[in-house]
Simulated scan of single mutants.
Amino acid sequence: MNDVHYPYVVSLLHFDTDPIVDQRSLGWAKQGPVNLTTINALFGSSMSLGTNKSLLGNSVYLALAPDSIWTVELFVRPNSLSFSKNGLFFNGDPGSNNSRYQLEANSDGSVGLYIQQGGGTGSVVALSPPGALQIGQWNHVAVCRNGQQYTLWINGQPSGSGLYSVIVSADNNFYLGLTRSAGTQWYFDGLVDEFRLTKGIERYKTAFTPATEPFPNQRPPYEISIAQTFGRSVELACYTIYGNLDNVDDTPAAACRVHLLAEDRLTYKSSTMTDALGQFHFFAPDFGVKKYSVICYDKTGLNRAVIGNDVTAELV
């Protein structure tokens, strides 16, 4: 299984190893006697939480405030909802009245997204109907932000939305299984699995079926389309390598950076950007090298795809 948005994932927890490992290499620390269990687990093993048990990540990448588009999601299986507030996640400092984002399950089974700026009263931005979260069952819960719009999704269905225009300055502390209200910390009694934070992507816009297997750790193979072959240019009286990209995955051809490598596919020779038509040229490459590799990068600048190997520059 692949995830086309995997380059935008900043944190991914499977809870299948102890110590808990983030697939994107962020650090997380247990707060209290947190353990993994296979009993009633979703996939393999799941994280078991309760009173005085939470998981803390501290990284600039986990801070929600600076980014205008993101998706936070996780699977939860409540043992009970006996507290008036049951913390699912909390981004902020729980020991103060600083700004924060907090997602809570209420005793009536509703789920609410609360945002607070500074020491004022928090605002209920999105609230699901009562009974949306089922005790003793696995539930997929997601929050999507796109600018001032926040949408809550439960088990693939839109379950509440709202607008919040204030610029929030929450810090880097990100807790799973904890929230805070009126100076009291509230925990989550139950299991958690498959936590994922994606920035730059609003993953859910219409009803969907939640994942039935662990979230993928990789993106799909690149889909490369080349409108014409490399080789002879009738316009240029020199050694030339040229080509025309149709597209590179979800990146428009005109937005691609193309690199020229030597035959060993490691030694950098040159780079260029495709033009408005997706065309590129490398003029007068090293005459001593007869074959090259050509690669390009998608719009993230992180993921590359090989366009052609053993490409020959021709004299025209």
Rank of each mutant, 00 (worst) to 15 (best):
D108E: 14
G147P: 03
T37G: 08
S25Q: 00
E104A: 09
M47N: 07
R77Q: 03
L55Q: 10
N52V: 02
N146W: 04
I69P: 08
G118A: 05
G131L: 06
F90S: 14
E104N: 14
P78T: 01
P33H: 00
S46G: 06
K30S: 06
D67M: 11
G87Y: 14
S110C: 02
N58Q: 13
N35L: 05
A132F: 09
V125W: 15
R100V: 13
A29W: 04
Y101N: 10
S59N: 12
A41W: 11
A29Q: 12
V141D: 04
F75N: 14
T51Y: 08
W70Q: 15
S99V: 00
S25V: 03
Q137K: 06
I135Q: 00
Y114R: 03
N146E: 15
S110V: 01
N35T: 12
Y101D: 07
S48T: 02
L74N: 07
G119I: 07
G32M: 03
H140P: 03
G87H: 13
V60Y: 10
P66K: 05
Y101K: 13
N106M: 00
V125D: 14
D67F: 12
N86V: 02
D67G: 05
S59V: 01
V76E: 03
M47K: 14
N40A: 11
G112E: 10
N97M: 08
V143S: 05
L55G: 13
G95A: 12
Q117D: 10
G92M: 05
N58Y: 03
D67E: 07
G118S: 07
P66G: 06
S128H: 12
A29P: 08
F83P: 02
G119H: 02
